[in-house]
Design a protein around this nucleic acid. Structure first.
Length: 272
DNA sequence: GGTGCCCTGTGG
DNA sequence: CCACAGGGCACC
């Protein structure tokens, strides 16, 4: 799944394509509308006009001129892209929004984990999960003090803490490993074992790694369309993720272990 | 907290 | 065929 940097890419590509476009038609082919029901979604979204796009954690939020918001979560395999009429059919297309410039906003998702919600103007959002999210990694509130206190007394690893959306929003399985590598900490280190310096290093590494990833993931709208909205990750920049048995820059070898059921990669020589 | 599950596709 | 995949949730 797309994590924070990839959602930023989607936002960057889609923003100019959707800005001021009116929705002429909503076609729902598979049940991915989580709120309200499909017919209400179709009725209330049709005719509305796109404004700005924002991101909260791994959620993409399409702010509509009506004051409504369309929230999208891509989960593992969701794709969201603007394509012209003549664009070849994308497998597992679940929702198609017709736009007033003749293009379509397409939501596709092979595994069907992704979801779309319509949050009405003034409505309290207690269904998307956004309300429970912790601070953004780039927020001033995401400090070593906050992070360490938030998880203190719990028997979890630093990787699990980084991936906990209620604690800090937007970090998933890939970037948690990359952040631990940058911080020089094994991902399976219990949070109880971290020193204040370790916490500082973890927080500064999170900011650094995520900012670098946002910059590295820059793709053009053409590249994005050509890849059917899947080319939002530039994996050659990963230092450890997906690199089991490969050489680390230090000369050591990247290992893979399971942490809370998720594959986790690290270099035993530079991460302690 | 850990586990299984929601789904489908891919690679070993 | 089985293991695994970028997420999150309900369940023990």
């Amino acid at each position: 799944m797309p994590e924070l940097p990839e959602i930023e890419t989607v936002k960057r590509v889609l923003s100019p394509q959707l800005q001021s476009r009116r929705i002429t038609k909503v076609e729902i082919l598979k049940p991915v509308i989580a709120h309200p029901d499909e017919s209400a979604f179709r009725r209330e979204a049709t005719g509305d006009v796109f404004g700005t796009i924002s991101r909260r954690g791994k959620f993409l939020i399409l702010n509509m001129k009506s004051g409504n918001r369309v929230a999208v979560h891509l989960r593992m395999t969701g794709q969201l892209l603007v394509a012209p009429l003549e664009y070849p059919e994308i497998a597992h297309t679940h929702v198609k929004f017709g736009l007033d410039d003749g293009n379509f906003l397409i939501f596709a998702d092979a595994r069907r984990f992704g979801r779309i919600w319509l949050i009405r103007k003034g409505e309290t959002d207690e269904f998307t999960g956004m309300a429970k999210l912790g601070p953004e990694p780039f927020d001033e509130g995401f400090t070593a003090k906050y992070f360490s206190e938030r998880v203190s007394g719990r028997r979890i690893t630093i990787k699990q803490a980084l991936m906990e959306q209620e604690t800090v929003a937007g970090i998933g399985n890939i970037y948690s490993d990359e952040i631990c590598f940058e911080a020089g900490l094994r991902p399976d280190r219990p949070v109880s074992s971290l020193s204040p310096e370790d916490w500082e290093k973890t927080v500064s590494s999170a900011v650094k790694v995520l900012k670098q990833a946002v910059a590295a993931n820059a793709v053009t709208a053409e590249e994005y369309l050509q890849s059917k909205g899947e080319n939002y990750r530039v994996s050659e920049f990963f230092k450890v993720y997906g690199r089991e048995n490969e050489a680390c820059g230090c000369g050591g070898t990247v290992k893979r272990i399971k942490i809370a059921g998720r594959s986790s990669y690290f270099c035993p020589d530079c991460q302690k």
